[in-house]
Design a protein around this nucleic acid. Structure first.
Lengths: 367, 367
DNA sequence: CTGAAAGCGCTTACAG
DNA sequence: CTGAAAGCGCTTACAG
């Protein structure tokens, strides 16, 4: 006689088959196992059918009397049965989940992208799990391992660091991967990106059309040390060249990627023998820092120096003067990433063509 | 003769036990199963030991000859074995993962909190998975179900909507839950929060000390319709009362929670017969919108109207004048949430006392 | 329409 | 130090 039977004695009104009380009793003796709720077998036992039949109802496979179906549904409700997705994933070899690895959650660019991914995943019946690498390659690797180990069907990643070796290895190992705003050509990896070069060109062309000729490039020093030249710098140079404006290395100002970095950059510009008449910034945070410093130094924006940022974060609208910026539709980019991933998951043998999204220039008061 | 044996024929140089080639060959025939990499059994077969022994090495349980250990480690490397965390979680009844459910990823408050949670989880050897409810109770419920179904050991959640019924139900069902900035008293639920009332008091006391008496409360209309009165309003009123300043309902301005809402609120204030001489805003986004509108209307900040926001987001530093704000240490709050959750996971039977973190007032140029 | 059997990849008691 | 057996909770072929 174990604790189950003693518990059964209280359930005298329930005659034939096992009851809710049994099921909870089964779990009561060991409080540490409280975590695992009712199982398929529990539901089956309550109703008096096989687990297979309950499984059919849970998965809406049909092939089942409405009567038993209703009883099973009622029992599921009663015992609070929820499928164990680990068990299901183990056997189905797919979990209907995808992973998203942020390089830097604090980047204002990121949350809106993540929202797009989530909404898009939702509409495909998938759950998105987000992890962050904090721009650390080791953490990226462990996030990747963890996500994969937990059975995600694929991963969207903002690559951390300079090398993509681990991503390539993971993809070769059978994990579908989509990289964002990064050029990688490897089997099992698809690419989605915004047309950053084109965006930079738009910004600089715009400044030139406003009569500016000494256009500074305020750039994240980190981005400039990467092996691949910054796409913003490529666009900056090509727009200058297209208009016959000479490239002046003295107008490239490197700084650290922060508000204060933007301020420092502005101070450097003002200290130069020939200050610029416009600034194209690597991103909006740098642009906002620079603008603040210029304003507090008595420089008029845009009259003396015009400014254009990159990303079009919410705060562009909040400052005075409002900041012009290159807008990336992050929501759309998120959707595109999910679509690429879905294609990769469904056809692992196909090559998925890179997808690039156009960007806009939003002209406001700062230029 | 199946495809395996034919593949084995090529591996003539490898005599005794199964080799890497076999393992990959086993998977090659069916491309769709590429996803599942090498298993414990594969490694065992390659080395010529039992799965149990490989398991011991993988988990560092010791009790194993250094020689076999090395051979197993080498084989793991060779075949690229990675543990299937779903299988492990199924049997261990814990996954060493926790879930975090955001109400709104786009809220500037959130990412920094999430970073704190992630770092803290990391240091405990846990992986954090983030999902979002988009302030939708149904999506919160499905995120909760999904996370739970995938075996997370507990969940930290920013509750969506007005009722906590589903959270209470989930907790009763055995899922440890920590709620953030919300008062819920139920078994299995722990609370972590910032002292929002105290923060509001600090802000209003500060404005009073600056000689302001007509202090507007610019508040998210949504927050005001919740059943529980906004803690910011409670603090606002108590600070007024403490200084003997009469509460004037006309100074409470409701608006939607956005930059534009902040601007609209400011317009309402200016249109009043007696405009305020200070604004205490529900959050920084509202404060920034209001400040922008006031400045563009020729109001001097802080001379004519002082402004204090709430949350201390990065952009408080980026605007001119810099915005004073109530600072919540989001990183610390994230750590606290993980600690509470850990306590709940380790002692499901204990009641975990609510934990409240103090907040600061950061006085800048706007007040 | 329903069920008995096998197994996903791993770990937990046990034995040797 | 090492292994054979059982089983976590589910689904996938099969039979009836």
């Amino acid at each position: 006689m174990d604790s189950r039977s003693s518990s059964l004695e209280h359930a005298t009104e329930h005659p034939r088959w096992a009851t809710i009380e049994d099921v909870s009793a089964r779990r009561t003796p060991n409080p540490s196992s409280r975590r695992s709720g009712a199982t398929l077998a529990d539901v089956a036992q309550v109703v008096g059918v096989s687990a297979r039949t309950v499984s059919r109802v849970v998965n809406g496979e049909g092939g089942c009397t409405p009567a038993t179906r209703d009883r099973i549904l009622a029992a599921i409700e009663e015992v609070g049965y929820r499928p164990n997705l680990m068990a299901r994933g183990l056997i189905r070899r797919r979990s209907d989940t995808i992973g998203l690895i942020a390089a830097e959650m604090l980047d204002p660019f990121f949350p809106e992208f993540a929202e797009g991914v989530q909404r898009s995943a939702d509409s495909l019946g998938r759950t998105m799990f987000l992890a962050s690498s904090n721009t650390d390659r080791e953490r990226q690797a462990s996030a990747l391992m963890s996500l994969r180990g937990h059975g995600v069907d694929g991963v969207i990643v903002f690559p951390a660091g300079d090398s993509a070796d681990d991503l390539v290895a993971m993809a070769a190992d059978g994990l579908p991967i989509v990289v964002v705003n990064t050029e990688i050509d490897a089997p099992g990896i698809a690419v989605v990106s915004a047309d950053i070069v084109g965006g930079a060109e738009l910004a600089v062309e715009h400044l030139i059309s406003r009569g500016r000729r000494r256009i500074a490039l305020l750039i994240d020093e980190h981005a400039r040390t990467l092996q691949t030249p910054s796409r913003r710098e490529i666009g900056y140079r090509s727009a200058l060249a297209a208009s016959g404006v000479a490239f002046d290395p003295l107008l490239v100002v490197e700084t650290n990627n922060s508000l204060e970095g933007g301020r420092q950059g502005a101070r450097k510009m003002l200290a130069a023998s020939q200050p610029p008449d416009a600034v194209f910034a690597y991103n909006d945070v740098l642009a906002l820092g620079a603008m603040q410093e210029l304003l507090s130094s008595g420089v008029r924006v845009p009259d003396d120096i015009a400014i254009v940022g990159f990303d079009d974060i919410l705060m562009c609208e909040a400052v005075t003067p409002r900041l012009s910026s290159v807008r990336i539709d992050r929501d759309l980019l998120g959707h595109g990433a999910v679509e690429q991933l879905q294609a990769l998951i469904e056809h692992p043998e196909h090559r998925v063509e890179p997808r690039r999204f156009p960007v806009d220039l939003v002209v406001r008061d700062s230029s």
